[in-house]
Simulated assay, not measured.
Amino acid sequence: MYKPIYIFIGLRYLWNSRLTSFKKIITTLSIIGISIGISSIIITISLINGFQNEFKKNFLSFIPHLIITNKNYYIDESEFPKNILKLKNIQKVSSFINSKVLVKNKKKISIGEIIAFKAKNYDSFRNYNIKNTLYTLNSKENNVIIGKKLAEKLNININDLIKLIVIPNSKKKFLTKQFNEQIFKVTGFFYTKNEVDSYQILINTQIALKFLHYDKNYITGWRIWLKDPLSFNINTFKTKKNNLLFLDWTLKQGELFKAVQIEKYIILLFFISILSVSGLNVVITLTVNMIEKKNIIAILQTQGLCRKKIMFIFVTLGLSTSLIGNLLGTLISFILIYQKKILNLLIKILFNNISISIEIFPFQIFLVNIIFILISILSTLYPIWNITKSTPSTILSNE
């Protein structure tokens, strides 16, 4: 005799050679439905992970996630709120000097933004790939390195001279006739494949201090990069000092941040929809089995099999279906993810000239599988309750 008996009976109900074709089709479709749901969720989450990783690497690595300054954008370096360094989400902090400027060559004019470069803050500019030209940003010569897109817009070549005109922060200064302006020599370009290529201008710190008429030890503010810029609360960074301004990247890139947030809600809705369909799938499969097996269940009850064990029979049936579907779905998703050619081919049917980036987190896959299994178990409760509420005498009296 097989023990425990309810597992043996549950597995026999799942699949055996005497099952009718209709039951085999129902069971197969149920497993296929769960497999498609699992593989769809895993592939979608992996694509989102890849997109967010590329977004952080190619976009958020070039702009500060948080800027600390004051209303005048002119602050003493000694006023830095040191308690911020205690926060766990901080990756790096660097002081900076910047200002919006008009960039003018012989025939064209555009708006740019100068960023002062310090040798000790080289990590902040590592992604700019300007190591070979950094030596030109010395404190003795008026040299600058500009973005390639800005250079193309103004038809600027290396060693060309450009005029930078500071745009005043306040309306009063803007109405005056005197503007800070100076001639600079372009000694190099940077190309990051990012929007900073169209406006940023790198300049030596000492030259920037003189150009902007900054006093010694005064800066524009501090730039902060976070470990996870996509999920942080700006209120955790604020201090008791009311004169400080805290500007996060979501203010400057509001529409882009909203798009990322909407993407998360869509994925959550998609996840809930797939869970609902999979749960309904299990309910239908079990209900069909129970309607057909109700007489046998009644006979088992008259033979002394308690309701608890009968419940376990159908829990075993639902759980087996879910486990097989989960394993197949996970396997299919892994094959499609690691064989990127297949996935690229499927994506190119809908989108042209798009490159995909995929990143798998084992914990997420484990969590998805666990949630699907739990939903499958919960889905067995209604069919079980429906069949066990009737007594054996009521069921068999109709025979």
Rank of each mutant, 00 (worst) to 15 (best):
S61P: 04
S198F: 03
S139N: 15
L286T: 01
L367I: 14
P392T: 03
S124Q: 04
I183V: 14
W222C: 05
P81S: 13
N242I: 04
Q253T: 06
K340H: 11
I26M: 14
K71Y: 09
R12C: 03
L212D: 07
I349W: 05
I167E: 03
F96I: 10
L175R: 03
V144A: 07
L11R: 06
L47K: 01
L268C: 05
I335A: 13
I310K: 00
E292M: 10
Q200V: 03
S21T: 08
K172M: 09
L209R: 15
K3A: 06
N72A: 15
M1P: 02
N353I: 00
K140H: 13
N155L: 11
P392V: 04
V166F: 00
I347P: 01
I115P: 03
V282P: 01
I38Y: 02
F80V: 05
I234V: 15
K107A: 13
L47V: 10
L305P: 00
K341P: 01
L374E: 12
I38V: 15
I146R: 02
T133F: 04
W249L: 07
F51L: 14
V101N: 04
L327E: 03
L85A: 08
I356C: 01
I130R: 00
L226D: 01
I90H: 06
N129Q: 08
K163S: 04
N326T: 10
S94C: 05
F232E: 06
Q91N: 15
K56A: 02
E399M: 05
I25Y: 10
L47W: 02
K294R: 15
I377A: 07
Y128E: 01
L29P: 08
I284T: 13
G147F: 01
L85H: 05
N169W: 09
F351V: 09
K177S: 09
